[in-house]
Amino acid sequence: MIRTALFCVASFVALSSTCFAHKVWLRPSQTSLSGSEPWVTVDAAVSNDLFYFNHFPLGLDGLVVIGPEGKEVAAQNESVGKYRSVFDVALEEQGTYRIAVLNKGMFASWEEGGERKRWRGTPATFDGVIPEGATNVSISESIGRVETFVTNGAPTGTALESTGEGIELAPVSHPNDLYAGEEGTFQLLVNGKPAPEMEIEIIQGGTRYRNAQDSARVKTDDEGKFSYKWPEAGMYWLSTSKNDTDTSIPNATQRRLSYTATLEVLPQ
């Protein structure tokens, strides 16, 4: 039981698809801030319910905060608890911050002496893992992005610029300029290029207090764009994934991409 659970946690790092039932998320204390020195505190967790930490904390090894100037900003007070991880970000500059946990992983399997072997890790720890004489070697790569956005003052775009790696959300509507009853439009990018035919699942938080997930599914158009009209104010979770063969690791044949974002929709 514990082993399965641990395996699942490991899979979130490597392949978030392995444990379908669970959702990975960041949840900022607020997204629209003002003042001389505003801070946000962010919960990071893996759970079924949105946004309640009742299953596993999300590891913060891949935490990257990009500030309004496009430069990396250090998170503070990082802590990993039983059910959630927590960290703070001081918003010293005016504009939008992109807060993300990036997980780059590798999965390998092979046969050795008639036995099937499996390995999970990162490109950095891969050297020498597969023994000589191994047959039926299969190597795959994974890139997962779990992110959210917060703004001090007026929304800006620099932090949202594409890194060109994995699935990313490009703004048509700014992610910190979303209002109940209005439509939000975004473009999905894969490796920096518009990604058509992607299916996005959108779920509003507060699932514990209703009977159904009430998830909405939207698809990207030819330009990789999708729109969704927010039915009410609240925190929303967006998720999408894709398998392709556009790998960056030598000998890898398959790539698994996943993306989730937490967006706050404000009341009118």
């Binding site: 629209s32 801030l33 003002s34 003042g35 001389s36 505003p38 009341p267 009118q268």
Partner: peptide, 11 residues
């Protein structure tokens, strides 16, 4: 900037 923290409440 003192006192500006709650200005977003004038949403």
């Amino acid at each position: 900037g003192h006192g500006t923290k709650w200005l977003p409440d004038l949403r």
